[in-house]
Write a protein that binds this DNA or RNA. Structure first.
Lengths: 244, 244
DNA sequence: TTATGTGAACTAATTCACAGCT
DNA sequence: AGCTGTGAATTAGTTCACATAA
């Protein structure tokens, strides 16, 4: 359970167990970027880099360095002035902040293309998450092997959640079935849900739902693409008007 | 090209073509929510609802009504005081703001599970986007039918972009191949890219890249789940301390 | 009445710029 | 000499609360 103590290089923080981690809390915007930093750090570590300055880390994460430093400062003071950050140590600190020093048992509901993509999405799911089960209502999919698990029938949901102490449910079913699956997850005590179905789920307070929508980002791209072409059009029109 | 004029119910705005749409620009946070409103509006329209108040639309989009009204106010004044919004008209106005009154030709690179999930993601991709091609480097996938298109070999990328005037590229290949595909898209003139590969793409200025990361949201969930269990732990510790 | 649209107040996030540590 | 960590300044986003219009 407690893991900070034995990690190499983790200087024992003052040992009062009741100390709140990250007093004052970490801003949402920062939390949303920590996974990006973590990925960049893993990439650096794999290249054998042991120390990195905020400039370089910021560049490989696609943010500016002031923002990176401010973000990291919410976790603590883990850099060395004049030098930079120790990559391995920072990996640990960011992982710890995100709650990834433990591995979260996950159930994926839906073994369609998306569920399959998720089950095979090795890289980062493997660090911090363990896919305990993939479920589907289609009997012809039950028994097939996805990644490292066998597809089970969705009727086993409640039993599997209890058996594996599942904390996070991923909904990768069509919109029509999503709310019902969500209700069942909530009823069995799951309080963290990642929703890929294109609808807003209704949940009681205390349940944390996040969504990933494959089409929203595309629509935002369309907005900017349109803006670019409108701008060109307006420029051209203005030029024409100026000449007239 | 111009489509506003013939849409039923669209009161001719003052007809100066050079008028910038949405003067002052629409805030990013608003743009990011418009697709959610649009989806909620479509759902209402399908249920036969013709008029909706900000309270109800906000509820089905999962935001509060003040935010919804402020967001919509950036597009114009399309509600009726004392009544609400005309659903069909608002669908049109939001679509127009997002640039979805035209259909954007899209190429999907990668016909793995994710590419397949995208190609079959009927619902919203069909409104505003047309998948012109799905490409893969694996010859055993070439020729297979995905959704309504046949998988082509990735060597045809440049030709297909030119032929169909493709404006948006979707990268659904493993991380190792993503930057190379991105470079080829950029070289052929694509300026809007949606990246599903877990890395930060390098692009020249003027190219708009957005990313969808299947694991970042999961990591954010883990953060909050951890916070909840830490809070419980601290509570319990405090209680124990108080009793001692 | 009733529900929109919006200034004003507030809160969050970003960026600047530099003091302070190694 | 160089890079972190952070107050202060700025900018963006949210929420309030009510005048205004149908």
């Amino acid at each position: 359970m407690s893991s900070a103590a034995e990690f190499p290089g983790s200087e024992a923080e003052p040992g009062n167990l009741a100390d709140r981690p990250y007093p004052g809390g970490i801003p949402d915007a920062t939390v949303a970027r920590l996974p990006v930093y973590l990925r960049a750090l893993y990439a650096l570590a794999e290249r054998g880099v042991t120390t990195v300055a905020s400039d370089e880390l910021a560049r490989s994460a696609g943010v500016n360095s002031a923002k990176l430093r401010k973000d990291l400062s919410h976790l603590g003071s883990y850099g060395i002035r004049g030098v930079g950050y120790d990559v391995e140590y920072l990996v640990y600190q960011v992982s710890r902040a995100l709650g990834l020093t433990q591995r979260w048992p996950v159930v994926i509901i839906g073994a369609g293309n998306l569920g399959r993509a998720l089950a095979n999405y090795g890289g980062f799911l493997n660090r911090g998450f363990r896919i305990e089960a993939v479920l589907d209502s289609d009997p012809s999919l039950v028994g097939r092997k996805l990644g490292s698990v066998i597809v089970r029938h969705v009727s086993e949901l409640e039993a599997l959640v209890a058996e594996h102490g599942i904390a996070i449910g991923v909904i990768a079913v069509p919109a029509g079935a999503a709310q019902a699956m969500c209700d069942r997850l909530v009823a069995t005590g799951v309080t963290s849900i990642l929703n890929f179905a294109p609808l807003v789920l209704n949940v009681p307070g205390g349940v944390d739902v996040r969504k990933v929508d494959l089409s929203i980002e595309l629509q935002i791209l369309a907005f900017h693409a349109q803006r670019r072409s409108t701008a060109r059009f307006v420029q051209a029109t203005d030029r024409a008007a100026a000449e007239a």
